[in-house]
């Protein structure tokens, strides 16, 4: 039987479980969120452990913010073994302390670094690729469909950038919504969010047209390089990048 340990679907609960397992020298076959559907070979274990709310703070203080971020970014990824990777990373963290980031000959470390890099690059890319439209109610609204769960990272970015505007970002893939009220941002799910009027403001179409015009004209014809564009701006993002989706409407 495979022993599968369950955690509530959040990072703090996962880290508490992992910490408990490591301290008690338990080696799990896997770690999964509560809604995991077990197979016939799985033995599902739901431990009741006391949650240490300061665990994240302790990781940051004892090691570094960079090390915590590696764990956090792996958690935001959709890698199917992310919990196990974090488990083995944490296990080695206790042994190697802050030197862990140099131990790239360990599989769990090189994997964790690679995944966390993938997540942070996607977040960075989307800081550029997010496209807001202005709604009638003076709210800036954008939809995204990222590979990783980066909406929180984006919200943090736009909180500083568009701090005097109301804005909403929706992760269409995960049904997550981030709302900013000119003071702070909140994360919620689609089911808790009711908004019916998505009409754009009067000037929005004009501005969008000007942008598309600018986009098309700024390319130098003699230098056309489709492959290069695709490398930097992969097709999977085009649907929500208006200058691409409107130019290629038939594709959708």
């Amino acid at each position: 039987m495979n022993s599968i340990y369950l955690y509530q679907d959040d990072l703090l609960s996962l880290l508490n479980l992992i910490h408990y397992l490591v301290i008690n020298k338990v080696t799990p076959d896997n770690i999964k969120p509560l809604d995991y559907a077990p197979t016939l070979l799985d033995e599902v274990i739901n431990l009741k452990i006391e949650v240490n709310n300061d665990l994240i703070k302790q990781i940051i203080n004892n090691y570094s913010i960079r090390i915590f971020n590696i764990i956090y970014y792996v958690f935001l990824s959709e890698n199917e073994n992310k919990e196990l990777i974090i488990y083995y990373f944490y296990l080695n963290l206790l042994k190697y302390k802050t030197n862990i980031i140099y131990m790239r000959n360990l599989r769990c470390v090189s994997k964790a670094l690679k995944i966390s890099k993938y997540v942070s690059s996607e977040a960075h890319r989307l800081k550029g690729f997010v496209r807001f439209k202005k709604l009638k109610q003076e709210i800036y609204y954008a939809e995204i469909a990222p590979e990783n769960n980066v909406i929180f990272l984006l919200a943090k970015h736009f909180k500083n950038r568009l701090k005097n505007e109301y804005w909403i970002i929706k992760d269409v893939k995960r049904g997550l919504i981030s709302i900013y009220d000119k003071k702070d941002f909140y994360l919620t799910t689609e089911s808790n969010f009711k908004m019916h009027d998505f009409k754009t403001s009067e000037d929005d179409a004009d501005i969008k047209d000007m942008w598309k015009e600018f986009y098309n004209i700024i390319a130098i014809e003699q230098r056309t390089n489709e492959r290069c564009r695709m490398n930097f701006m992969p097709k999977k993002y085009w649907k929500y990048i208006i200058e691409m989706s409107d130019n290629n409407e038939k594709n959708y």
Partner: peptide, 13 residues
């Protein structure tokens, strides 16, 4: 931050 890439592959920021 690069916001887009034009048909010539150059970044538009």
């Amino acid at each position: 931050i690069c916001h887009s890439f034009s048909a010539d592959g150059r970044c538009i920021s």
